[in-house]
Computed example of a mutant assay.
Amino acid sequence: MHRTYSMRQSRAPTASQIQNPPPPSSTTKAGRFFGKSNIGHSFRRNAAGAFGPDLAKKLSQLVKMEKNVMRSMELVGRERMEVAQQLSIWGEACDDDVSDVTDKLGVLIYEIGELEDQFVDKYDQYRVTIKSIRNIEASVQPSRDRKQKITDQIAQLKYKEPNSPKIVVLEQELVRAEAESLVAEAQLSNITREKLKAAFTYQFDALREHSEKMAIIAGYGKHLLELIDDTPVTPGETRNAYDGYEASKAIIQDCEDSLTNWVEQNAKVTSSLSTRTRTLSQRRRNRHQGEAVDLADQDAPMEGNRDSNLWIPASQHHNAEHYEDDDEEEDASVANGSVRGREEERVAA
């Protein structure tokens, strides 16, 4: 019997992909050493945040940890596909009903593996957006350092040479440094909030689509199981001939149609706020902005260019080039067995 392995022969765009075009392939899927192994997981986690400006170290560690999460999800997706193929291979030698159903179940499980792979690409949008906050933090660090350095110099001169004419010059430089730092800190505060909301909107939209499609597959999988005759037979008794081939194909087709036509507006699971929660959120907005807020539309998907004004080119970030290709440099250091530095010990508060 021909084993299917895949739900669709051609990959036409789904309704969800037409509405929100899929992102480019995840940055974690390229530039690896030693193939697709996870040899760098522990090195990456331990070395994360060991270099770069102090302000960006904590978020740098988060970015590296998310990279580990994404590569683990990649591995899960590949292994699901292998499991699907093995299930189909095993069922081929079984009775007709078991053989047909296991083949179709393999199709569904293989589709889950492909959904995992697509989810990684969308999850990377979240990670890249968080990574851009880290670059902004790194660009703010020099202004902080300059202001602190001038302050220390003034304090030292006032202690050693109270009448030194350099004090006046340094105080003027400090005024300029404080003004520069004030602008940088304001930009960091504003953009951090905008990008944080954009990043987790990417993640939650991807989670919702992934979870709903997984639930769809699970539902049709249970319909397939109904085609197996599990009525006990006595020794020597013959089961009725299996006639569910057309039904199993129809179930797979219905599943494909449901996945293809799924869009976020038709999501089955919704998160409704209680009356108390709505009241509290409206009160808070009234206090701060003088207007009410309705969170009923909180689950609206992000449009393709909705947050385009949030992005700042890398060239506008001071010292951003230090981080631009850090993922690839990091993989190279892992491959050469020369990861430097240790994770700083966490001091108990």
Rank of each mutant, 00 (worst) to 15 (best):
A155N: 15
K131F: 09
Q125A: 10
L170P: 01
P165S: 03
L157E: 09
E137N: 00
E111N: 05
E137G: 03
V168M: 06
I167A: 09
D117P: 05
Q125E: 15
L157D: 08
L115K: 14
I150K: 01
I136D: 02
D145R: 05
S164F: 10
E171F: 11
Q141A: 07
S143L: 15
D121L: 04
P142M: 10
Q153K: 13
R146L: 12
E114K: 11
E111P: 08
T129K: 02
K131N: 11
I109T: 09
L170V: 05
R134K: 13
T129M: 13
Y126E: 02
R146I: 12
K131I: 07
K147P: 04
R134E: 10
D121T: 10
S139W: 00
K147V: 04
R127A: 15
E116A: 12
V140P: 05
L108W: 02
P165R: 03
Q148I: 10
K166S: 06
K160L: 01
D145V: 07
Q153W: 02
E137A: 08
R134L: 04
P162T: 01
S139A: 10
K122S: 14
K131V: 00
P142N: 10
K147I: 00
E114G: 08
S143H: 13
I150R: 09
S164L: 10
K149V: 05
E137M: 04
T129W: 10
I150S: 07
I150Y: 01
T151I: 14
D152E: 14
K122M: 14
Q148K: 07
Y126K: 07
D117T: 11
V120D: 00
D152W: 05
I150N: 01
Y159A: 15
E137V: 00
D121K: 00
E111M: 04
T129I: 05
V169I: 12
S143D: 12
K131Y: 11
E114V: 06
Y159T: 14
E116V: 04
K131E: 10
K122V: 03
Y123Q: 06
L108H: 09
E114N: 04
D152H: 12
G113C: 15
V120M: 05
Q148R: 15
G113Y: 10
T151W: 13
Q148V: 13
Q141E: 08
S143A: 12
A138Q: 03
E116C: 07
I112A: 08
K149W: 09
D145Y: 05
L108T: 04
A138I: 02
F119N: 02
I133H: 02
D145P: 03
Q118N: 08
N135E: 12
I167H: 03
V140G: 03
Q156F: 11
K147E: 07
D145Q: 12
L170W: 00
G113S: 14
V128D: 13
